[in-house]
Design a protein around this nucleic acid. Sequence first.
DNA 1: AGTATGATCTAGACATCGACTAGATCGAGA
DNA 2: TCTCGATCTAGTCGATGTCTAGATCATACT
Lengths: 216, 216
Amino acid sequence: MSETADHGARAYHHGDLRKALLEAARGIVEQEGLDAFTLRECARRAGVSHGAPAHHFTDRTGLLTALAVQALEERVAAAEARMAAAGPDPLDRLKACGLAHIEFNIRHPRLDDLCSHNGVTDHSDPAMQAVFQKMTAALVDAMSAATGQPMKPEKEANPETLLALVVVTGFAKVFNDGMILRDVPERERFGRALALASDLLDLLDSAFRGRGVSAD
Amino acid sequence: MSETADHGARAYHHGDLRKALLEAARGIVEQEGLDAFTLRECARRAGVSHGAPAHHFTDRTGLLTALAVQALEERVAAAEARMAAAGPDPLDRLKACGLAHIEFNIRHPRLDDLCSHNGVTDHSDPAMQAVFQKMTAALVDAMSAATGQPMKPEKEANPETLLALVVVTGFAKVFNDGMILRDVPERERFGRALALASDLLDLLDSAFRGRGVSAD
DNA sequence: AGTATGATCTAGACATCGACTAGATCGAGA
DNA sequence: TCTCGATCTAGTCGATGTCTAGATCATACT
């Protein structure tokens, strides 16, 4: 048990500083926003010195990358759970998958920022690549089942698949950037957004159902 | 001519430092990325001291906000030109508008970052609000013409309009984040993306044309 | 014409940041 | 028990954004 990469709960001076730092980082990012995140404030919240994080994450990028991976894993898990609960119909499952991603992204807009903002995280990180691969694989599977024909990853660029990807990605961005529902009171905003997203996916469903989903 | 807000070309010590700073800032953001932008480097490129920018922009946010406004004005102007050249058919004009926004956003991904990234720019800035209002007004007009029924701004939340907004916004994000066409050589990436975007809009066009665009 | 005024810019200071280094502290295996 | 490595602290460095005082210069006023 001498590996540096052992992320299990170890009890040294602090207890499990890695976990504590990740929780502190998540708190900062979700409450104050990505720009407010600093390594020193993170260490402050965890009650350690400003140099301590360097022993668990190589640098600022490393810590934020780990946080992004954690968030993406939650998102993927939520999507998988929703798909499992959606029943057997492939289009229902696809819609459940899309709605799950949208819901996570509008419920945690700052984490969505973190994951999509280029430069603050390391996309070449193995854990990052792993969760990305898992996510795209799930999407490709859902799309294959919905269209009824197997779809290879490199065939990702066909318009129908792209439309699904674009709508899910775009809706969260449009909402989180305040381009829609800006004047709706905070209490109702989330629910209204979810209902709107559902309508949007239903619209696509009705537009393409029975049309032969593969147009080209 | 004693107004502080006079942004015209004045020739003091530098000549027109405001313009020079904006050009330097744009160079940094477009070449090195938003994270690489610093006021001091900006001043360095303009050949002035590090404190000089404060006299033309209140602070870092102010300078970046001005740059974002400049970019958005270019984008809106490009969209208007494309619409004017698209001919009379409302759906053609709407597609031209959407493609213009997409093209600008994938041609200047860093500027797209700047404009959409929350926190670095001041959305309450008057110039920012003005260009945003102009942009949404143009979109609402285009949608009203395409659907054949007048659409009030607060009615923005109907699924069809939302779909157009979401697709345009989402496509640029999906492409700029490298979720599609990642392995395509740089030389072909831009052209392929534009073609894909055109296909996507055509797909929506064919799905909704003659269907009674207003579903609800 | 000569001066006063205000806009423009420089130079220095300060707090804070990320990263690096040396040294103290502590836990686990020999 | 003792050693060794992992963990953490404290100090330092260069860089950044912002603030302030002072110098410089174009324009307006008399």
